[in-house]
Design a protein around this nucleic acid. Sequence first.
RNA 1: GCGCCGGUGGUCUAGUGGUAGGACAUGAGCUUCCCAAGCUCAUAGCCCGGGUUCAAUUCCCGGCCGGCGCACCA
Length: 575
Amino acid sequence: MSDGAIAELAKRRGFFSQTAEPYGGVAGLYTYGPQGAALKDNIEAAWRELFVTREGHMEISAPDVLPGAVFEASGHLETFDDAIVECPECSGSHRADHLVEDATDLEDAEALSPERIGELIADREAGCPVCGTALADQPVEKFNLMFETNIGPGSGSPGYLRPETAQGIFVDFPQFAEYARNQLPFGVAQIGDAYRNEISPRKGLLRLRALVQAELEHFFDPDRDEPPLERVADVKLPLYAADAQRTGGGVRSLTVRAAVEEGAVEPWVAYYLGRSLEWYDEIGVDMDRFRYRQHRSEELSHYAADCWDAEAEVEGDWIELTGFAYRGSYDLEKHAAGTGEEYSVFRQYEEPVTVERPTVDPDMSELGPAFGSDAAAIAAALEELVERDPDAFDDERVVVEAGGDRHEVPVEHAGFAVEEVTESGEHVPPHVVEPSFGIDRLVYTVLAHGYSEDTVDGEERAYLAVPPAVAPTTVGVLPLMDRDGLAERARTVAEQLRAAGIAVAYDDSGSIGRRYRRQDEIGTPFCVTVDYESLEEETVTVRDRDTTAQRRIRTDGLAETLRSLRDGDRSFEEL
RNA sequence: GCGCCGGUGGUCUAGUGGUAGGACAUGAGCUUCCCAAGCUCAUAGCCCGGGUUCAAUUCCCGGCCGGCGCACCA
């Protein structure tokens, strides 16, 4: 298939086109037309069917705008800002923090301020990696890839458009845990828009500034919960591991069972790789142009401990469809720290346990007069010390550091005691595995993989071989001729099918062959044609898009037949 | 953000210092008893701004958008 054929078809047939074209268009913003919106909806519905209904998770819907504090806690404010320095000679842009890392023994220069990075570049006389020109006097600028806005009037409450839908789930985890009756494991799913102010959006739907994500956050107890691997144990995964990428190796086909047994893939991630593989196949991704690629260590996100991408080959390039990330407890711990709230689940022991716990109860009426303004800090230091080293309270005096000084405190004033405490359980910070699907890229891939050309009666034709379940329109209803009452009859049939909940296109314009081609091109899997026999004997023909074969069937039960074809309960050959 | 190339009806394109022609598609009609047939008619276009010029779609500059390469892709 030639490059650009999808974009051309997309625009001509109403799948998608650039937003605000009369104003010149905006890079990275696209609007789905009638066909595209329907295709996208169907893919989202198929996703929901698997990840919410069949897997038994809960779907939520959070707002696109979230307060700045959320992204401070999540790390996005810091790490979504890339420090860039531009070379005055060759105009190349380079990651300023990477230059510093190369020139120094620092490993995490990304965390430094732009000013500090600039100083280090000047100090180490770092040069442009392309042409060598000194960069000492060049400003270090930050590219913030989040869209910023203000919540309410004034600038006192900065807000950001979410760069991933996930944060809407993590931030209100306590609420969702409550709905889940505090029972791990449970999953929270969300389909919604995310926004990234990309420096250079490219290639149509593949790199957008406003995109649709379908994400599942599956929370579980890392010590106790195991994924139901038996459901997917025999699914064969095309794995392109990090090692293979480094050594020039290729894709290795392993069953889920084998991949987990040899430790190639984390078990929860492996479960979702297996579960998703069949789903991709069902919605029309070509399994011969599909693989799972592991992130190399250097490309892992700040939050991810391990990550595999589902990738599809489209127009010669491998593109990421989904990231399956093992995020550990990173996000929940960040939000716990950011809010002081509980982002964990209480797990009750089978039997309560009684433990001896050393405690302090500082006597402030003594410490206050004795230490003045340091007293509060000393009390806190005592509480910290008793957890760390209870033996320090064995002597008459205990030494703590507070306010920059060492203080000797009489143990009797610390209120040291060993209490018997009965604990009925403990707080477990859940781990999370996150399948994160890019819906727009899936739409594009389904179009690209479905696009086909063949020859019918010596005429070339193009058709979209997308599965009936995701096709924008399920049935085209066509009168063979626009005369002799055929059109009226066809309209009645179309109404009946619509009333039965089937997506129907009615078309009486042009020759029958032309109308079949139109439906082929937008991927309509079946056409119902009303002909002269229909008027006499209550039958119509049903035509199959991919083969152009036809069957004559009775009109009573037509809706039921088409529905079962759409839902995959029977095939056209079985008619 | 940088470099190179490009931007003419919905789509694909021809062409020009004196504002444009085709094909396909679309609509109306004729014809037509199952796969883009034919005929008639119709709708519809020079990306935006500035400059040069009597006159700019055309030449120059800038912008926007697109393709490719670089960088970026948390």
